[in-house]
Design a protein around this nucleic acid. Sequence first.
DNA 1: AATGAATGAGACTTCATTCAT
DNA 2: AATGAATGAAGTCTCATTCAT
Lengths: 197, 197, 197, 197
Amino acid sequence: MTDDSAKERILCAAEELFAESGFEATPTSRIAERAGVPKGLVHYYFRRKSDLLAALVDRLPDERIEPAAVVVPGDLAGSLRGLVGELDRRFTGSLGLSHLLWREADTHHVVRDALSERFQQLVRLMRSVIVAATGGRLAGADIDNASGLLARAVTHRHATARHTGDDRPAEFDGELTFVANALSARVGKGKPPASAV
Amino acid sequence: MTDDSAKERILCAAEELFAESGFEATPTSRIAERAGVPKGLVHYYFRRKSDLLAALVDRLPDERIEPAAVVVPGDLAGSLRGLVGELDRRFTGSLGLSHLLWREADTHHVVRDALSERFQQLVRLMRSVIVAATGGRLAGADIDNASGLLARAVTHRHATARHTGDDRPAEFDGELTFVANALSARVGKGKPPASAV
Amino acid sequence: MTDDSAKERILCAAEELFAESGFEATPTSRIAERAGVPKGLVHYYFRRKSDLLAALVDRLPDERIEPAAVVVPGDLAGSLRGLVGELDRRFTGSLGLSHLLWREADTHHVVRDALSERFQQLVRLMRSVIVAATGGRLAGADIDNASGLLARAVTHRHATARHTGDDRPAEFDGELTFVANALSARVGKGKPPASAV
Amino acid sequence: MTDDSAKERILCAAEELFAESGFEATPTSRIAERAGVPKGLVHYYFRRKSDLLAALVDRLPDERIEPAAVVVPGDLAGSLRGLVGELDRRFTGSLGLSHLLWREADTHHVVRDALSERFQQLVRLMRSVIVAATGGRLAGADIDNASGLLARAVTHRHATARHTGDDRPAEFDGELTFVANALSARVGKGKPPASAV
DNA sequence: AATGAATGAGACTTCATTCAT
DNA sequence: AATGAATGAAGTCTCATTCAT
């Protein structure tokens, strides 16, 4: 039941084109053309061009992932691998959008805010997965550090996916395992976070 | 004895403005204005606007850091902290330029190439510092993984510096220490890389 | 009921100005000015300047003349005089356009093609008139030669009309009569073209 | 002993380029480039761009042909053929220049004047050859008409040489012979011009 | 004499946006 | 609600010309 309304088609076209050539370099006329709608309609729905960008951000798919869906209790490396796999899968489906956000974050705070929000959400997710997979026997600081590190690494990987012609997943798997091992080695050391008691 | 030639002033103005508003959104006329030169001179030196971007990339300061300058033998955490400190210092000096590169990498391969090149260089640097600080008693895979992880994390931190209003250094220090600890815990495990024998 | 639409006014202005100063030397802004329309409208109707030239060529009045309208059977000289008179009349109405075409033929094939097409048409017309006026008692070669000669002469005369401040018609009348006489002298000599049998 | 001075090289380059793309469309910078001289030198020798055109016209090779060189006494057709052959030969050597003149005649009177002058000279030449080949037994009017007709035809042929991808000479030979025959048929009729007595 | 830097007017073109219908 | 005509500001870039050396 995909929304096939003109408005939706315009947004899709805008998303594609902004991702291909950037916001400034994309004329609204080309958006109309790609959406197969008359030029006037674009401005009928979105009075200013920047409204398109805002609408795109509003429409951002909720990337929420249920930790339970990827966690293999007791197997931290496997859990993380499952999580990253799922993130990669979703990312691939909206590669253009992601890049668009990176590009325009500096100049459009709507975008910037959405991006930081997503990052924070990713950190929290990392944390949940780690906690769930290790049964809460890790110190809070360790969890935080590992989560931050992995969130950054995954984000960086996606941000540069286009540059490197696709970061070899195998290579990243090593980094991921490294963190998993580091965490496993610290199980039991330090006091677990209050929330995990 | 800063180069005060018109050409140099144009480049500086371009760098500032591109960083402020992005490449597409910056008119050459505004560059001329800020550089205090007639509009024609900009195009006299840089026939097309994109040549300005290319020149900016060419002019990119060499970020080479001598491992010896930051390594404290035997103190891995300290060494990494020294390295990141130095990277942060340099980064702050050219914050705008860095962001510009991230923004335009998707549409200008000159930029994209420069960016990946810099990342590779950073990974190599990480590796050198780790090796130098641990005396070559680590397995190659561990070094690679940690280097990749840290390079990504540092890069991501710089790329988002503006979004987060400056990532609190303290927070990152934890992540860094986490990696240092993880590596230290693995000293002696696995075979060190041939080059370190 | 002349078409008074803006588009039409733009075309007329372009025709005049191109004829006055040449295609390259005429800024689109001056076209807008003379047409009394905003500058943007010129490019709204004709995206590139050369499209104006192409449109002008498309709009070229059909110079088709019915042989019957000028032929006086049995009077070749009179018939040719009638034809050239009619050609002159039409030419005078679009003198500028004609010159424009000559000027730009070397660099715009649209123009070049239109020009050769018109010349071929003129040769055919000459042939028809000669045949109609002489009742088909002339050899094909003679008809062809005389037609080619006259078509060239008439064309050259028009092409240089501006240079010579208007070729005195009287003078050309002599050349025309010369050809008519030459043809008349050959009536009955040689075999007429198959089509005239 | 070709003049290899910079000034001469500039003129040659200008001639070529004006012929290729027209006067307006040729930047002086490209002239300097093709001539292999610094940009400043072009304006040093020719303060304004139009001075180049004027100099080119001044430098026009004298197309004077000695009637004696082509006339075969008693053979009018042969004589005319010889003349046209020689004209064709010379024309081919300076095809670009000829076209240039046609193009710019409308807007530069220096050029326009040179062009009419050349045409008049051609008519006179035609006349001389006809007279010399027929021994002065033709009426002046016939000579004038035939000369005008042929001069126009030859000029038209050269003016359109580029358009038609080279007017087949054979075809024109017919037209030429047609005139020769027409004249021959009139030998003895009418009174010859005073000058021919 | 010769040259390359420098200039500024202005060319073509694009485009977001408005508006009448 | 929807559309395509219309607009004008502004953008990139070109180029003849000047000028200091």
